[in-house]
Design a protein around this nucleic acid. Structure first.
Lengths: 224, 224
DNA sequence: ACCTGAACACCGTTCAAGT
DNA sequence: ACCTGAACACCGTTCAAGT
């Protein structure tokens, strides 16, 4: 958070932040698999093993990278009503995870939670409690929302086509490829051929559809 | 699908199925990271590179492994009403993914879908169409359900404690560890300390809570 | 304190060779 | 047809050494 650069830097020095920044940028561009400690050193303009001074191993580097992503998620504002606040936080989470597709699948399992993670967690719980959810209902509400958000981005980041038009084109291509099997799979033929290949599939509106369905369901769980 | 073993096998021969079976079992026990092509050869009682005869590379091996998991998911029965059928299919998906924790995160992104995957996909679409969902509503309904199911298991498989009691104990341990920071994070203190550390967190009931919330929301989308 | 280079035990993949 | 062994270009990590 606060940069403590020595006043007498002879050259481009390394730092925890700069290593993290470079690692995130590198993973964004080439994927997490392509990010090796050696490649990271090179990208930093330093030696192959230079990152090991700041991170004991690759797992701890990933801990740090994940918390960078958490830091980009907009926490729910206490100014807004709970539904709007949760909706915006969900959208912000989706956006952050789409900027850093390597992160999904590593956001939850960390044994030591980063500072940004904990801060966001606390803000979400506070939003729900303030809206009149009981302790139990708060746990429920948190679970459903996060399962949905992470699951949606997981599906989304795995699919190649991005826009609704791309999606329609890809659907049409796949229909051609599987043409001889379509008799065996009539419902895929109907839904993909009759709908997706025509109107496409827009991730943003699809995301909001499910999100609002969940938020409306949760609203009935509140007290008063 | 159909086994074509030669009648004159001199010894324990390899086969596509046996390689796949062994790979899945190995990943179940030690994780996907620990599964190397060399280790797999050893586990098969064959040479280090033996699996390369059946799979061009590790990615195609993973394609096959993922479809094994899809094959373990119970497709929706046409005998049941749509909500019960979807509920059972969701529970079955969660169970399969919990048996094969390495699979989550690899189920969706495959470029060539396996046979079991396509079969299940078609059955789910058929169930929804048969229940009176329009083409558009079917796509919505599929999206929400799968996002929720995958996302829930993603969270679940990342957490270490399994039972509600374990969870409560772990929560208590974490409360101790973060004691000095609790003033900064009052809502975590309240929810974790006041609820989770006491009653725990049962994954199965938590899963059904969100699932039913979604299914009930979707019910209002049907025609007639 | 901060960074480097060589060394170790591993990878995935290719390919000529064996039966 | 089915499998093997050696070889290549990579990994993550350790550690003694440099400044």
């Amino acid at each position: 958070m606060t940069r403590t650069e020595p006043a007498t830097d002879t050259r481009a020095h390394l730092s925890r932040e700069r290593v993290l920044e470079t690692a995130v940028a590198c993973a964004d561009r080439h994927g997490l698999d392509a990010l090796s400690m050696r490649k990271l050193g090179e990208e930093l303009g330093a030696s192959a093993m230079s990152a090991y001074y700041y991170f004991a191993n690759k797992e701890q580097l990933l801990d740090g990278m994940v918390d960078v992503v958490f830091g980009e998620i907009e926490p729910p504002s206490p100014e807004l009503d709970w539904k709007t606040a949760m909706r915006r936080r969900a959208v912000s989470t989706r956006e952050a995870l789409n900027r850093h597709r390597w992160a999904i699948g590593h956001m939850e399992g960390r044994t030591d939670h980063g500072a940004a993670n904990i801060r966001l967690h606390d803000a979400v719980l506070g939003c729900l409690r303030g809206a009149g959810f009981s302790l139990e209902a708060t746990v429920h509400a948190y679970s459903v929302q996060d399962a949905y958000i992470y699951g949606f981005v997981l599906q989304e980041s795995d699919m190649s086509p991005q826009t609704a038009e791309d999606f329609a084109a890809e659907a049409q291509r796949q229909m051609e490829a599987y043409k001889d099997m379509l008799a065996e799979y009539p419902h895929i033929a109907e839904v993909v051929g009759g709908h997706v290949a025509k109107v496409g599939y827009d991730y943003a509106t699809e995301f909001l559809f499910g999100l609002d369905l969940i938020l409306e369901g949760l609203d009935r769980l509140r007290e008063r």
